[in-house]
């Protein structure tokens, strides 16, 4: 056991050379083609969200009833919906909802999960027990159900939805962080750091956190996609982003399903963007994980 862990003991925290980081990220696209594709997809998504009013040819709520249910054309790139609204414009504006929900919820989730998970694993004992009991309580509720309940209590709306999804994602996430941190804590270099008198904060956030980051990144990227999917599931049950704001999930689960046999493009395009976005987040996450994991560094 000892000799097996000797290698990890010699681990040095990531070098701080900005130049190397920069160089590495430019290498990223070449080294990790899937991750690169993911990065490009996410970049496009972000641009769409930011510049939505410039990109969308029509306001997202503008009806053209005489042009309803038209297939994709040069005027309406993705066709029109049952009210004759331009689906392309709605998809573009829908990117804003996805970005807000996805990044908002996951930021909340990452923050809470890191703090809870690492503190719980590091201190152990009573602190661990207390935190884990609270986590247990929260985790005991089926996710979708607790979400619907939260939405019903705080009311529907974009920010409430983001908060609710963030809270939901964070607690389970903290479990994984804790499990990962427990493994890290068992390593000799933590014992060594303790021996040389490093402060708790320093050990937790300078020594344990960097080693947990790969796990956090993997889970956080999954969650970015998950947040978008959760929104669409909630829409299916009638608890998603309420009209008139267009969300991909709402377009897919609502009128997209109703008109599925008659005008499939109403579902196909928002559905494709959900799939693309989830794909992008996950691929980017995978690539980053491989690139950032200190133990993998220099291995190729």
């Amino acid at each position: 056991m000892l000799e097996e862990q000797a290698g990890t003991f010699s681990y040095v925290p990531p070098a701080s050379s900005r130049f190397r980081v920069l160089k590495r990220s430019s290498q990223f696209l070449v080294d990790k083609p899937l991750g690169g594709i993911g990065a490009i997809i996410i970049a496009v998504l972000l641009l769409m969200a930011i510049f939505a009013p410039l990109i969308a040819p029509f306001p997202y709520a503008e009806n053209h009833i005489s042009d309803r249910l038209q297939g994709p054309s040069l005027r309406y790139f993705f066709g029109t919906d049952a009210s004759g609204r331009d689906i392309f414009s709605r998809v573009v504006y829908g990117a804003r909802v996805s970005v807000v929900v996805g990044f908002g919820a996951v930021s909340i989730s990452v923050f809470i999960a890191s703090v809870l998970g690492i503190v719980s694993a590091y201190y152990g004992g009573l602190v661990d027990t207390l935190i884990q009991r609270l986590v247990d309580i929260w985790l005991s509720f089926p996710s979708l159900v607790i979400l619907i309940s939260i939405m019903a209590v705080i009311g529907m709306g974009l920010s409430n939805l983001t908060l609710a999804i963030g809270l939901l994602l964070s607690v389970g996430f903290s479990r994984v962080v804790r499990a990962s941190a427990l493994t890290v804590k068992g390593n000799l270099f933590i014992e060594a750091a303790t021996t040389i008198g490093a402060s708790d904060m320093r050990i937790m956030f300078r020594h344990i956190l960097p080693n947990v980051v790969p796990t956090i990144i993997v889970i956080a990227t999954v969650q970015l996609g998950a947040a978008i999917l959760i929104e669409s599931s909630l829409s299916f049950l009638g608890y998603g982003v309420p009209p008139p704001r267009p969300s991909w999930g709402g377009m897919l689960s609502g009128s997209g399903l109703v008109y599925f046999t008659k005008a499939p493009w109403m579902a196909v395009f928002p559905g494709a963007f959900i799939t693309l976005a989830v794909f992008g987040f996950n691929m980017l996450g995978d690539g980053l994980r491989d690139a950032l994991d200190p133990r993998l560094r220099g291995s190729r």
Binding site: E62, N63, S83, M156, G238, P244, G254, L257, V258
Partner: peptide, 17 residues
């Protein structure tokens, strides 16, 4: 309410416009 599903949502959005 969103409780009646997509068609009623559509009607409400149309009414608003």
């Amino acid at each position: 309410t969103t409780g009646y599903g997509a068609t009623n949502n559509q009607v409400m959005e149309l009414l608003a416009e």
